[in-house]
Write a protein that binds this DNA or RNA. Structure first.
Lengths: 366, 366
DNA sequence: TTGTAAGCGTTATCAT
DNA sequence: ATGATAACGCTTACAA
């Protein structure tokens, strides 16, 4: 009932041409006469042939037309972040010349399964043990690493061993890997300076997590800040306000900002300004301020970071640092295209622009 | 400088075994002695061989280990919707037995590019013309269609022609395609009944778009509702409130709900309850109510739909219909697994559960 | 412009 | 438990 699927050879035979000619008609990689094209296409239609099998084509070509996007966490977490989504958009655009599609590769550490009995027998290290199987067996031409901490080294090792070209966004993967970066520190410095010019002295910093897994709360100069982005933005703020109290959130969301904001605003020495490390956190702080009956920016100034559209913040325009998220993705995509073309891709650092919104103003009179 | 990449044949030779034996060591598809395994692995390490080339393996196996996820729009739009993200999570879980990765296939209609001169010459229809090239050339084993309107028929045709197993979430793709559905109408009916029991008479419906591209605004019984989800939920509400005024949003977001909410609450005959078709819209309506100085639920009752966590709605627990979004995805994944195993997958309809939150209460005294 | 030929690297089958 | 062999379906030199 279901006969063997037609191949390009069948189509060629039916059309009375050679397989290579038929191939050329489908790929367009060489000229073919209109008449030949017509015959081949007609034969294809007659046989229900829908075009070259991508699996066979990719073996022969050595390219699959797929670019992997590796996240340092769950899909859910990644897509909760508007910046990540914008970057994905950019990556898709950037790799467009390749006509490539994006393969989602979440890189969650699988709990290290105890290996088989023969373990101490073998001196051979199974480097793939702590790496999702898709990472080793997905037919990707290149990979973009997103939001990568030091933690994900094993996956990176696998990719390098496979000689898959890799570019990393916001992270350090060693000297050979092109990086797409942001001027986090300088940018945050600008926002802090702005507040200082407005006269703010009592400023609190609301940061991203300083360490994976650490609980929400205050931290001091003694606490190590292990997350790069957090550290960079923190440094920029600290350059202006060296001794500002700092409070670390556990994630970037409005609700998290609200919870953190409540605590920050509850203290005896209430700040006149809060520098939040993301727009979502800033939005939450604004909510917290509203709860306390504080007006923004009259009683409290709030700055964010990212420049994303925060859904539900309609009434305000956030004073924030707008990062070119889509362009970061686009640059990563372009880097991939370059590497695949045999050129070597340079690292890029993007610059945030400071946007004066409506959420930061003069320091309130004492 | 860069010599040819080692193949499994090289590894086999180095290890003194046959290629098929080496293959077995890597795939685990047949038993191999510990000693053989050790030798092969050692040879692989020595040669820098990182495992079978996925492209070759997928040609031979006839499987790529990739499941496509097709969105009826841009990635950006898709990932803006928390329900979609939850579903993606579920799909990933559902296809886990396949050890497959997910390929993103946005299905935006490319502006029909005028074809070459020889056009009227040819009677052969190029069915792929209005379909993204990735759809025709991506090595996917199966596809999950998400949020699909009638619009995307061409892509579906391509997939069927390629004989790629397809399952569709919230949409109708014809009798042969397994569907993952929700009891939208019945569920919405429950929420409406609840409001009626609370005594509400003046109720306004805030719906999803009734037609792609239509502007925000009021609509009546005469207006055709072309979007399935919108129609189903609307019908459920209309069964209880046949003549309730209805207002269509243009998307599902808090800000959109806020804008719509303002207009809904501004009228002369202000409703005592709003039935919103999504949680995000409901959240926006609540914001709008707050703006007018209306208390929820004392002055205005609001119900949502979806049961997602709305970031920034901390103070309320939405009265809503909780849909099993993750399970929908999981079911789609399971259907894919079944179809790939040669079984045929049944359609599934999931049931929403009504959650009594804090946003709907008794009708305020006149 | 079209045809011929030679793989691309792997794995399933069937012996042994 | 291991080995020999034959595809999997296509594309690209190269020749005509």
């Amino acid at each position: 009932m279901s006969e063997r699927r037609a191949t390009i050879t069948d189509v060629a035979r039916e059309a009375g041409v050679s397989p290579s000619t038929a191939s050329v008609v489908f790929s367009g990689n060489a000229p073919a006469s209109a008449e030949t094209r017509r015959r081949v296409l007609a034969a294809a239609e007659a046989l229900g042939y829908t075009g070259p099998d991508p699996r066979a084509a990719s073996l022969r070509r050595g390219r699959s037309g797929i670019v992997g996007v590796v996240f340092g966490g769950s899909l859910r977490a990644a897509f909760h972040d508007p910046v990540t989504i914008a970057m994905m958009d950019g990556i898709a655009e950037g790799v467009a010349p390749l006509r490539a599609a994006l393969l989602l590769l979440p890189d969650e550490t699988s709990s290290a399964a105890p290996a088989s009995a023969a373990d101490d027998d073998s001196s051979v290290t199974d480097v793939t043990a702590e790496v999702p199987s898709t990472m080793t067996s997905a037919p990707i031409d290149a990979a973009v690493l997103v939001g990568f901490g030091q933690t994900r080294q094993p996956s990176l090792d696998v990719l390098r061993a496979r000689r898959v070209p890799v570019v990393i966004i916001e992270g350090d993967a060693g000297p050979d890997i092109p990086r797409i970066e942001l001027d986090n520190s300088a940018a945050q410095h600008r926002a802090a300076s702005y507040l200082r010019e407005l006269g703010h002295e009592r400023v609190t910093l609301l940061t991203l997590p300083i360490r994976p897994g650490r609980a929400r709360g205050w931290f001091g100069h003694a606490d190590a800040v292990e997350v790069d982005v957090t550290a960079a933005r923190l440094a920029g703020a600290r350059a202006v306000y060296p001794d500002a109290p700092a409070y670390a959130a556990v994630t970037s969301s409005i609700d998290e900002g609200l919870i953190s904001g409540r605590e920050i605003l509850a203290g005896p020495d209430r700040p006149t300004a809060v520098i939040a490390q993301t727009d979502l956190l800033a939005a939450g702080v604004i909510r917290a301020a509203e709860e306390c009956g504080l007006r923004v920016p009259e009683d409290l100034s709030v700055t964010g970071f990212d420049g994303v559209e925060v859904d539900g913040l309609d009434a305000y325009e956030l004073t924030t640092l707008v990062q070119p998220a889509v362009e970061k993705g686009r640059a990563a995509g372009a880097a991939v295209v370059a590497m695949l073309a045999g050129e070597d891709a340079a690292s890029v650092t993007f610059t945030c622009s400071f946007r004066t919104g409506t959420t930061a103003g003069a320091v309130p009179p004492a």
